[in-house]
Amino acid sequence: MADTALRVSAASSADKRSGLQKLMQRKSTIAFLMTLPLIVLIFTLVAYPAGYALYLAMLNKAMTKFVWFKNFDFLFSRDTFWMVVWQSCLFAISAVVFKAFIGFVVAHLVNNIPGKKQRKWRGMLLVPWVIPAAMSTLSWLWLFDSSYSAFNWLLEPLGIGPIPWLGETGWARFCVILVNVWIGAPFFMIMYLAALKSVPEQLHEAAEIDGASWWQRIWYINLPMMRNIIAITALFSTILTFANFDIVRVLTRGDPLNTTHLFATWAFRLGIESGDIPLGAAVSLFMVPILAVGATIILRDINKRGSEV
């Protein structure tokens, strides 16, 4: 009897071992284990802070009481908040459109430069994107500065100015968008250039034989072939541009009259500088659902096109 019991126990432990072995041999288990460090990292650096920000956004000003969505309710009743929403949209959309346009044009120009020279141009054109934004923006600040503005110095002999680059709403908005375009356009350029390289040369040759013009080749060959890259780049850049902080912070700090504030700088003003952390958290979270919906639509469209191909 005891012998039988022993055998049953040995068999069950052997079963367990083999079960564990089987589990470990499964591809999905190995894949999970290999991605585990990344999952932990994402949880620690993305999910936890996002969850904590959501928690903060639901506290009262003194952070002593849970008030659910009252902070959002309060924000929606403030004119300044809607001004920040409008400015963020203006900033992000216009900056992305200009970056995409400039990137597209420059990518085509660079693509037409032969061999070695192309590498040099590529490297040089990437410089604005490679320099830390806070540092390059500081240089721009000096270019716009009232005492030392190089732009005003150049315009003076022409009888123009002095222009209050950062002191007047229109000019200040122009300046922050300009700096963002200057920094971000090289990223578009390099992405579009990579996409252009993957367009088969035979298509262009065939089109040329058929008498297609330069514009028709771009419109009917390059654009459709680059569509996915254009969509992904635009999506990526839109998200980053909406979340921009450093350019506005260094150049204008949201002045004049809060007319250059973006979500991030406004959240900083409310949360860190003015001591209303829950309201600051609410501002910073406002765009998340809107961007998430936008991202889902664009990514679904890309997947759809991928499966069509």
Partner: peptide
Amino acid sequence: LPPDAPSYD
């Protein structure tokens, strides 16, 4: 005052 006073830091 200078015209860019609103942007002074």
